[in-house]
Design a binder for these strands. Structure first.
Lengths: 223, 223
DNA sequence: CCTGCGACATACTAATCAGTATGTTCAGGC
DNA sequence: GCCTGAACATACTGATTAGTATGTCGCAGG
C-alpha cells in the first residue's frame, strides 16, 4: 500500500459554501420535481443531482416537505418574478410586455412534457397539504396581482381599453395561459401550445383601445 | 365451542356479481384518485372504499397501472361523454349547450379542492408514463373534437359566426375551462371559478353571429 | 495549537405499499 | 352429488424510501 497523500479526496473538493450547497439542493429538487412531481421524486435522486448527501439535506432542511416549501417560496417565486413581474413592472405598455413573454415561452419537447412548475405543484399538492396550499395560493395571487397592477397602470396611460377590469383580465389571461400549457402537456403536442400562443396574443391585443390612432409606436401587425 | 351455523359470515353476503365488483373497484379508485392523485392513492384505501379485498382487485386488474388505465378508458370517458359530448350531440345550438354545461358545473368546496379529474391525471401521469399519456391524449382529443364538431354543425346552422375556426375555438374553450378550474384549485377559492364561469359564458356568446335578428329564439340576456 | 460548532458524510432503521402465494367459496355443467 | 374453474379472501414478501443516528471534517475564535 502506498501512503496516500493528505488530501486523498477529489482534488480541491470545493471549499465549504453552505449557501451554495443549499442552492444546489433547491435547484436540483426543483428540476426533478418539475419533471416527475413532488411525491414521486425521491430524495436520493435529488441528492445525486445536487452532488451532496443526505446529511447535507437534513442539515439545511427539516425534511422533504420543508424542501418543497422552500422551492415554492424561493425558486418558483424567483422564476415568477423574473419571467413575469419584473418585465411587467419595467414596461410602459403591459400588453406589449405580456405578448413578448408569451412569444418567448419555450416550445421544446421538455417544456411540453413538463408543463408549468407552479401549476404542477398546485395541482398535486394543494388538495392534500395545507402548508403547500397556502404558499402556492400566495404565489399565484402575486402573479395575477402583478399582471392586474400592470394592466391598471397601462390603462391609465392609454395602453389598455378603459372598459376592461384589470383583475378580471389578469385572471382570465393566467387561466388561459395555464390551460394551454396544461392541455399541451396532456396531449403532448407542441403545436397546440404554439397555436395557443397565437390565441393568447390575439386576446391580449383585444384589450387595446379601439384605435388610438398615432399613439407614438404604431401597432404594426406582427408577422 | 358452539357449532357455528353454516353461514357464519354477514347475512346474505350479496350474491356473486363480478361486473358489479369490478365497477365498485373502478368507482372507488376513481374517487380516491380524484382526491389525492394516482400515485398517492394506496390500494388499501381503494379496497376499503370498494368493500372488497386485494384478491378481487388482482383478479379483475393486472395491477395498479391497469386499474388506472381502465379508469381513463371507462370512468373518465363516460364522464366526458355524459357531461359534454352527449349534450352537445343532442343540442341544436352548441353555444347554448356549452353555456348550460358551464353554468351547471359545481362550485362546492369539494369541486374546488379536487379540480378536474381528467386534467389531474393528465398533469400527474402524462410526463412519466407512456401508456397513461396515450390514453389521456385520446380522451382530451375526443373532448376537444366533440366540441369542435358541434361548433362546426352549429356554424352551418347559423348559430356560430362563420369566421370562427371550430378547432381553434374548441381548443381555446377547453384551455380556458381547464385553466380556470386549475387556478381555482390552486388558490382554493370558489369565487375565482364563479367569475371564471361568467367569463367563459362571455367568450361563448362572442362566438355568436353579430345580430341574426330574429333567429327564432331571441337571445335574451341571461340574468 | 487547541477547541467547539457548523457543515457535511455514511450507515442504519422503520414504515409504507405494490405485488404474490395460497387458501376458500360459489355456481354451473355433467 | 361432484367437480372444475371463476371469483374472491388472507397472509406474506420484497422493495422502495423518508427519516435518524452517529461519525468526520474544517474553519473561526481564543
Amino acid at each position: 500500500m502506498f501512503r496516500r497523500p493528505p488530501a486523498a479526496r477529489p482534488r480541491t473538493r470545493a471549499p465549504r459554501d453552505p449557501s451554495r450547497t443549499r442552492g444546489a439542493l433547491l435547484q436540483a429538487a426543483a428540476r426533478r420535481i418539475h419533471e416527475a412531481g413532488f411525491q414521486a421524486t425521491d430524495l436520493d435522486a435529488i441528492l445525486a443531482e445536487a452532488g451532496v448527501t443526505k446529511g447535507a439535506l437534513y442539515h439545511h432542511f427539516a425534511g422533504k416537505d420543508a424542501l418543497g416549501y422552500a422551492i415554492v417560496d424561493e425558486v418558483l417565486a424567483d422564476l415568477t418574478r423574473e419571467k413575469w413581474l419584473r418585465p411587467l413592472a419595467e414596461a410602459d405598455d403591459p400588453i406589449q410586455a405580456l405578448i413578448a413573454i408569451v412569444r418567448n415561452s419555450p416550445l421544446d419537447p421538455d417544456a411540453i412534457r413538463c408543463g408549468c412548475p407552479v401549476n404542477n405543484l398546485a395541482q398535486e399538492m394543494s388538495p392534500v397539504n395545507g402548508a403547500f396550499r397556502e404558499r402556492i395560493a400566495r404565489l399565484l395571487d402575486a402573479w395575477i396581482r402583478g399582471i392586474a397592477d400592470a394592466l391598471a397602470r397601462g390603462r391609465r396611460r392609454g395602453f389598455v381599453r378603459s372598459d376592461v377590469s384589470p383583475d378580471d383580465a389578469a385572471t382570465y389571461f393566467v387561466a388561459l395561459y395555464e390551460g394551454y400549457v396544461s392541455l399541451a402537456k396532456g396531449v403532448q403536442d407542441a403545436r397546440l401550445l404554439a397555436s395557443g400562443q397565437a390565441q393568447m396574443v390575439r386576446y391580449l391585443e383585444s384589450l387595446r383601445p379601439a384605435s388610438p390612432r398615432g399613439h407614438g409606436r404604431g401597432a404594426r401587425q406582427a408577422g
